[in-house]
Write a protein that binds this DNA or RNA. Structure first.
Lengths: 159, 159
DNA sequence: TTGTGTGCAAAAGCTTTGCATGTTG
DNA sequence: CAACATGCAAAGCTTTTGCACACAA
């Protein structure tokens, strides 16, 4: 087993512990489906939608329903193990959140490619605006849209 | 006629001229429906969804269809007279764009209230990230989510 | 054992499409 | 008058809900 996949197994173990504690605290049940979905999400590296997750699990012969996928995604978003995005499409996209630095996204409107970036100024803006507008700012979403220069000619969606 | 509504009439005249030029340039037809929808949008002050616009026009006995509302909204977004947002819901929201300073949004997740703010650091981030990621950044979306302190107790949606 | 969670299928909600008709250029 | 835009209704997609059964506590 390579170093990186070993690290992944560790992360999966950690997030399962966190999820378990969260379920316990909220008096929700610890079902095998919930942990399986969590694990599937953490084995992905992309920005997926609920249907892609459902299809992928069905393809592996898991017995799971869309309802449970949506339900579990919401639970995971609530305990900050998964983040939910809207990249200007009609469908929500998700990605694992634990152990990954908070980041924002830059999206190519031609090919659908999604890249990630960090900028400390966002935190400053959140703090300042929460102060000015008298809001308790809990999270944010920053998406930059444009075209990747040169390398992209297609219309397909990626990542 | 008050000063402010006079200003509004002027803006409406201006945006109609802009839209007209855009349609001409793109070889699209200048139909009365398209201009009526544009005017309706510019008489609003909120962040509305397509259905609300459609309903409001039907209530005024305009003969218009959802298809035309969606089609025209897209045309108006394309020529920067209207901006389209996703405030973390499943429905897209729109607002007029011409003559209004570019701004971002802070959304109360309890009551749905939407406030607007400006911060010059966003432009700096766009420029820098476009440079670093080799993207031609054309637009962006920044939403801050949280709760408005004190004043909000309801669950309803506003603005 | 009790009630929450699940799978399945149907419903709901937003958006797009097909088709016949109307209207612009 | 030819092509495009429209209204209407139906279809498409994503997400939610209802119900009977399964299973965690």
């Amino acid at each position: 087993m390579s170093h990186t996949s070993e690290a992944l197994e560790n992360i999966i173990a950690e997030v399962k512990t966190i999820f378990s504690a969260h379920l316990e605290k909220q008096k929700f049940r610890k079902t095998p489906e919930r942990f399986t979905i969590l694990e599937e999400i953490y084995r992905r590296t992309d920005h997926f939608d609920a249907e892609a997750l459902y299809i992928h699990m069905k393809a592996q012969n898991y017995r799971v329903s869309r309802a449970t996928v949506y339900n579990t995604l919401e639970l995971l978003v609530n305990c900050d193990l998964v983040t939910k995005h809207q990249f200007g499409e009609n469908t929500a996209r998700y990605e694992k959140a634990y152990g990954y630095r908070q980041h924002d996204h830059i999206i190519c409107v031609n090919c659908g490619k999604v890249l990630e970036f960090c900028d400390p100024r966002i935190q400053q803006i959140k703090d300042m605006m929460g102060d000015i507008m008298n809001f308790n700012v809990t999270h944010h979403s920053l998406n930059l849209y444009g075209t990747c220069k040169g390398e992209c000619g297609s219309q397909a969606s990626e990542n």
